[in-house]
Amino acid sequence: MSFIRRVGYALSGIRSAFRHERNLQIQAVIGLCVIIIAIMIHVSLTHFMIILILVAGVISLELINTAIERAVDLISTELHPLARAAKDIAAGAVLWFSIFSAIIGFMIIFTTLQ
């Protein structure tokens, strides 16, 4: 399989997730707002790169969470404690990274504004 085809499949997966996952849409909008604010207040290049990494990390974790949720739904149609735990743990990873990303983002923004 060609590299171009594999990239196409990956982009298709990203498009599908953005179309169907409300949390991913919300996180993308928040991430875009943070990036715009960072540009408007002229954060340093280093801080801007950190913000980009944090936004990309949250989006990436949400994509992984979505993949885990769909795989679990495919494997187990009934409610099972392990299926629920897998979904909850994946969602917890997104939440954990999002909280610390927000803290770091606020620190960067407030430091820049001083």
Results as ranks from 00 to 15, higher is better:
residue 66 T to C: 02
residue 46 T to A: 12
residue 54 L to K: 05
residue 29 V to L: 13
residue 18 F to H: 13
residue 59 I to P: 00
residue 81 P to M: 07
residue 91 A to V: 02
residue 84 R to Y: 11
residue 93 A to P: 03
residue 3 F to A: 04
residue 97 F to N: 10
residue 100 F to W: 11
residue 88 D to Y: 14
residue 12 S to D: 08
residue 7 V to S: 03
residue 113 L to T: 06
residue 57 G to H: 08
residue 46 T to W: 11
residue 85 A to H: 15
residue 62 E to V: 05
residue 97 F to H: 14
residue 69 E to A: 15
residue 22 R to Y: 12
residue 83 A to L: 01
residue 6 R to W: 04
residue 63 L to W: 03
residue 15 R to C: 03
residue 35 I to H: 02
residue 106 F to E: 08
residue 80 H to A: 09
residue 6 R to H: 00
residue 83 A to D: 01
residue 10 A to E: 03
residue 54 L to S: 05
residue 75 I to R: 15
residue 93 A to V: 15
residue 109 I to S: 02
residue 86 A to W: 13
residue 25 Q to E: 04
residue 60 S to V: 08
residue 51 I to C: 07
residue 7 V to C: 05
residue 78 E to L: 02
residue 100 F to S: 06
residue 82 L to G: 00
residue 87 K to D: 13
residue 42 H to D: 15
residue 81 P to Y: 06
residue 58 V to Y: 07
residue 8 G to H: 07
residue 101 S to E: 02
residue 64 I to W: 09
residue 7 V to H: 03
residue 61 L to P: 09
residue 103 I to W: 11
residue 76 S to D: 04
residue 50 I to F: 07
residue 77 T to W: 03
residue 19 R to Y: 07
residue 82 L to A: 08
residue 56 A to W: 00
residue 37 I to H: 07
residue 83 A to G: 13
residue 43 V to F: 14
residue 85 A to D: 12
residue 103 I to F: 13
residue 85 A to G: 08
residue 83 A to S: 14
residue 82 L to F: 11
residue 56 A to K: 04
residue 46 T to M: 10
residue 93 A to K: 12
residue 49 M to C: 07
residue 84 R to W: 10
residue 101 S to A: 15
residue 18 F to G: 06
residue 75 I to F: 11
residue 71 A to I: 02
residue 28 A to K: 06
residue 10 A to H: 04
residue 112 T to N: 15
residue 114 Q to H: 15
residue 47 H to E: 13
residue 80 H to E: 06
residue 52 L to P: 02
residue 28 A to L: 04
residue 36 I to D: 08
residue 9 Y to H: 00
residue 110 F to H: 04
residue 83 A to P: 06
residue 70 R to A: 15
residue 89 I to E: 10
residue 42 H to N: 15
residue 47 H to M: 06
residue 45 L to V: 15
residue 10 A to N: 00
residue 103 I to Q: 10
residue 9 Y to M: 07
residue 93 A to Y: 14
residue 40 M to Q: 14
residue 92 G to Q: 02
residue 72 V to H: 07
residue 79 L to P: 08
residue 8 G to C: 04
residue 110 F to L: 11
residue 40 M to I: 15
residue 27 Q to H: 08
residue 71 A to W: 01
residue 3 F to H: 04
residue 105 G to A: 13
residue 97 F to L: 12
residue 74 L to Q: 10
residue 55 V to Q: 05
residue 21 E to K: 02
residue 11 L to A: 02
residue 42 H to V: 11
residue 26 I to Y: 06
residue 62 E to N: 10
residue 112 T to V: 14
residue 48 F to Y: 13
residue 26 I to T: 01
residue 13 G to K: 01
residue 48 F to I: 05
residue 43 V to G: 12
residue 96 W to K: 03
residue 110 F to P: 02
residue 84 R to N: 11
residue 92 G to I: 12
